[in-house]
């Protein structure tokens, strides 16, 4: 759905990221939990400050993205800044035991078909 004109802000994404479109590390995925380690300071970019306030409770990257209304990649860039500054920490989710533990897609498809037939 197209955002309403009223909801737009004049700042463009490249001004928020300072022109960067990707980050080197790439260690953050969608469900990485972010926790803020300090309070926002005056003069901080408003997105950074907002992330710090939101992440007083551990918050996933994708949640932050929805909260800020920014694409995940942009949020990732902002988070990398904060990680570099040491004001947030990232907690990576525990990986699943192994890919084999999950039911195979074929099985899931068959279950879905069965459910549809009901």
């Amino acid at each position: 759905m197209k955002p309403r004109l009223d909801d737009e802000d004049p700042d463009r994404l490249y001004t928020i990221t300072g022109g960067r479109s990707r980050v080197g590390g790439g260690s953050l995925d969608l469900v990485t939990l972010i926790v803020s380690e300090s309070e926002p300071t005056a003069g901080m970019q408003s997105e950074h400050a907002r992330i710090l306030r939101t992440c007083r409770r551990p918050t996933a990257v994708v949640e932050l993205s929805a909260d800020l209304g920014l694409p995940v990649s942009v949020v990732r860039i902002l988070l990398c800044d904060l990680l570099d500054a040491g004001v947030v920490t990232a907690r990576h989710p525990r990986p699943t035991h192994s890919p084999d533990a999950l039911p195979s897609p074929e099985l899931l498809k068959r279950v879905l078909l069965g459910l549809r037939k009901l």
């Binding site: 197209k2 955002p3 004109l5 737009e8 463009r12 994404l13 490249y14 990221t17 022109g19 479109s21 990707r22 694409p71 995940v72 990649s73 942009v74 990732r76």
Partner: peptide, 24 residues
């Protein structure tokens, strides 16, 4: 600009740089 903003939301990192350039 509105369309580009929407695309920036929709597409991933691969195209984001190009979209930002166009946006600029």
């Amino acid at each position: 600009l509105a369309d580009l903003r929407e695309m920036e939301d929709r597409h991933g990192e691969d195209v984001l740089g190009d979209l930002l350039k166009l946006d600029h």
